[in-house]
């Protein structure tokens, strides 16, 4: 394992003429939680997809746990990924789904089953483990996705909105799990809209807006930069508003009739 679990240099993704992510560089130490914030459509998911080799960057390079993202075969052995939409088959039971994922990771059934049982119990899903996922609530489905992303003990785990749709107790379990992962030297790349989670867990927070990393600092430092009041929400709003304002100004300069109202 290198000192830095995630290194990205000039990562760019361009669709036609539009930059979804523009010249993004990251350097995230191993065994830390990186909170990745940004408004809707800012480029968070595209960034994560590039980092897990699901989307090819237009330019730039990145390494995860010392493996270039161009080497998917090796990369997949080091990462776990939870997309925003829980990756489950509705027709399967939770146990069958997790066993399926275990098999994709080459884990023998016996070994996988004992681990699945432990994790289902931890996430309070064991009693419903033989019911089909189609009968689950949103939160239960999300929990299955979280377990699937974590149970093969990856070096680096990418979590896209892991707590959305969860009740407070389940969200607490996820937060505790993430905190626990870090004690096991796992690196967590955490994308979310729920600011208190990153405030509580993240060692560093990166804010992306309009495809560009507009701020990166530890939570306390980011909060202290806020003008109005020293909290993360204010800091986030100010950081993203600054860019919107400058964009808006540019719009006004280039198009007298149009003023950006994105906020």
């Amino acid at each position: 394992m290198t000192d830095h679990a995630i290194i990205a240099d000039g990562l760019t993704k361009q669709y036609d003429t539009e930059h979804a992510v523009d010249d993004l560089s990251l350097s995230i130490p191993a065994g830390t939680v990186y909170g990745f914030l940004g408004p809707n459509g800012a480029g968070k998911t595209t960034t994560m997809r590039m980092l897990v080799a699901l989307t090819e960057p237009t330019a730039g390079t990145a390494q995860i746990a010392g493996v270039p993202i161009t080497d998917r075969a090796r990369l997949t052995q080091r990462i776990g990924y939870l997309p925003a939409e829980p990756p489950v088959f509705d027709e399967l039971t939770a146990w069958e789904q997790l066993r399926h994922v275990a098999r994709l990771h080459g884990i023998p059934d016996d070994e996988a089953d004992s681990r699945i049982e432990t994790l289902l119990d931890r996430f309070s899903l064991l009693a419903d483990a033989d019911k089909r996922i189609e009968s689950y609530s949103t939160g239960m489905t999300k929990k299955v996705g979280i377990i699937a992303a974590l149970f093969h003990d990856p070096d680096v785990v990418f979590l896209d909105e892991p707590t959305s749709g969860l009740d407070p107790r389940a969200a607490r379990t996820v937060r505790d799990t993430i905190a626990d992962l870090v004690t096991r030297e796992m690196t967590v790349f955490l994308s979310t809209h729920i600011l208190p989670i990153v405030d509580e867990l993240a060692d560093t927070i990166g804010v992306i807006n309009d495809g560009t990393l507009v701020a990166e600092a530890p939570p306390s430092e980011l909060k202290s930069q806020a003008d109005e009041s020293p909290d993360l929400e204010t800091a986030f709003l100010e950081v993203t508003a600054e860019r919107d304002t400058s964009n808006s100004g540019q719009s006004q300069l280039t198009d007298s009739g149009a003023i950006s109202s994105e906020g």
Binding site: R49, V52, A53, L54, R72, A73, L75, T76, Q77, I79, G80, Y81, P83, P87, V101, R103, L104, H105, G106, A148
Partner: peptide, 8 residues
Amino acid sequence: PTLLTAPA
């Protein structure tokens, strides 16, 4: 995404 990010 699970399939593509797994070692399978």
